[in-house]
Every structure is written in structure tokens, then in C-alpha cells.
């Protein structure tokens, strides 16, 4: 979140690492590596926590 991945922001899955994890995602002009477990927790967070908010990382 500090990296600026904000609600409603569009992001792009650039590529997966050779072993399928982590993922490289691009948003706001930068590429960031995110593990699958962390990428998953975004969604869990949204569903369980606060329906008004959209995905947020860590």
C-alpha cells in the first residue's frame, strides 16, 4: 500500500517467476514482485474486512 497500490487502481500481471511464484505486477509506472500468498491475502482482506475498500497489499 505504501508503494501506492490503491483502491480502484488498475494493475497488470507482467509475468510469473520461472517457478510460478512470485508474480511481477505493474501499477503506477513501476513493477513490483509479490508472492502468491500475499497476492491472495489481498482478496481475503477485501471480502472479510471492509466491503467498501478494494484490494490492498500488506
Amino acid at each position: 500500500m505504501a508503494l501506492g497500490l490503491l483502491p480502484g487502481m488498475s494493475l497488470k500481471l507482467v509475468r510469473k517467476a520461472p517457478l510460478g511464484d512470485p508474480l511481477a505486477i505493474e501499477f503506477a509506472g513501476q513493477v513490483v514482485s509479490l508472492r502468491l500468498t500475499e497476492a491472495e491475502s489481498l482478496i481475503v482482506d477485501v471480502a472479510a474486512d471492509c466491503p467498501i475498500q478494494r484490494p490492498r497489499p500488506s
Binding site: 508503494l3 512470485p22 513490483v32 508472492r35 500475499e38 500488506s58
Partner: peptide, 10 residues
């Protein structure tokens, strides 16, 4: 220690 997410800028 609490695990930290491995978020890495490329």
C-alpha cells in the same frame, strides 16, 4: 518475529 511480506520493487 512477525513474518514480513516479501514485496520487492523491480
Amino acid at each position: 518475529v512477525k513474518p514480513q511480506p516479501f514485496v520487492l520493487e523491480l
